[in-house]
Nucleic acid binder design. Structure first.
Length: 370
DNA sequence: ATTGCTGAAGGG
């Protein structure tokens, strides 16, 4: 059941789209895979050498490099979880971008278990239909179709899962997915973020802090979307989308099946903008995090997060400053050096070696300049 | 080739 990048799932019948059979899409999917597979390259081959030295970029690119991390990593946007990882340890997040797939098998297993629990919950509220896509315009169009159907499901049935959000923050586009949105019996819009845990223990304060930051960021972006602050133009600019580029026929057909008379991505974006702002969607009233034990699914703890916009904004400003190249990345303070114990990059971490953790123990006042 | 590019989250 491996999925490829050339296909994209959209919501199935449960959400108001008419009943196109899965088999029809599956057939298309096979055809697509066979012709697109050659263009697919493997994961980055930039791995640490045996002697422990890192090779991140070819030598010719080093030294003269004055570009921002956004440019260096060829990023058009960031994920919400990039920033929450950055909240945990900025240096670790940077290594994660430089050397993806650096996780231990144990960690991978925990993450996979978490992912499958999330998937099972998503399947409780809607089905998947597979649609072949070829361009990023197709991918975004599929996302928009999902948003349109989810808005109507939320307003009619009161609960949706895996709602995509995006918006420009501090000059950078942030993209993410909200686990769950539902109306409470009091009619308030509540966000739920589910966190599964390997061991039946409550999260540490640092973990909670990071998760609170994550859900606060979701609210910030979602609210901006329903308030009309996220415009098609901004998205086109950041993602460098071509709103007039022809969409894959399968995507167009699916849009029409859903009753959306759009002929281009541009049309679809306008429709999403209108739907977001004119569907009487409220801002998010309640932010809730639920920690559950992976093995039994029993609830270990529930956190209600007080949304502090100013505090959130100043954190985001600080994080984005790194991405824009306005400051160097930093690792954790010595008080949080325990985080290094479970970090995949501890062995190669330059922050640990020189100016980071040790600096604050050895030379609390005077910073050494390299 | 000096040129390019992205399901997001997954847990600690």
């Amino acid at each position: 059941m491996a999925e490829t990048r050339e296909e994209e799932r959209v919501l199935g019948n449960a959400s108001g789209f008419s009943d196109l059979s899965d088999s029809e899409f599956l057939e298309l999917e096979e055809t697509q895979e066979s012709c697109a597979s050659i263009s697919k390259t493997g994961p980055s081959s930039e791995l640490p050498e045996k002697d422990g030295k890192l090779i991140s970029l070819p030598k010719w690119k080093r030294g003269l490099d004055v570009s921002s991390p956004m440019e260096r990593f060829h990023l058009k946007y960031l994920y919400v979880t990039d920033l929450s990882t950055q909240n945990w340890c900025e240096q670790q997040m940077v290594y994660g971008k430089e050397f993806p797939d650096f996780l231990t098998p144990e960690k991978v297993a925990i993450l996979e278990t978490g992912a499958s629990i999330h998937l099972a919950r998503e399947l409780e509220v809607h089905d998947f239909v597979t649609i072949p896509i070829t361009t990023k315009e197709d991918a975004w169009a599929t996302k928009f179709l999902n948003i349109l159907s989810m808005i109507s499901t939320l307003q009619s049935e009161g609960c949706i899962r895996e709602f995509p959000v995006f918006g420009e923050v501090e000059g950078v586009l942030l993209v993410g997915v909200i686990d769950e949105l539902h109306y409470t019996t009091k009619g308030e819009l509540e966000l739920v973020e589910l966190k599964t845990r390997k061991r039946p223990l409550l999260p540490l304060e640092a973990q909670k802090k990071k998760d609170c930051f994550q859900v606060s960021l979701y609210k910030y972006i979602f609210d901006a979307m329903v308030q009309g602050k996220v415009t098609p133009a901004s998205l086109i600019h950041h993602v460098k989308l071509c709103p007039e580029k022809p969409l894959e026929p399968s995507v167009l057909r699916y849009a029409q099946q859903g009753g959306f008379s759009v002929k281009s991505l541009g049309d679809l974006m306008e429709l999403v903008f209108l739907s977001l702002t004119l569907s009487d969607l409220p801002v998010i009233d309640i932010l809730k995090i639920e920690y559950i034990y992976q093995e039994t699914a029993s609830v270990l703890g529930t956190e209600f997060v007080a949304f502090e916009e100013k505090e959130l904004r100043s954190k985001v400003q600080h994080y984005i400053a790194y991405w824009m190249g306005h400051r160097e990345p930093q690792g954790v303070d010595v008080e949080e050096a325990w985080k290094c114990h479970t970090c995949s990059y501890a062995d190669i971490c330059e922050w640990r070696k020189d100016d980071g953790v040790l600096r604050s123990t050895l030379e609390p006042q005077a910073k050494k300049t390299k």
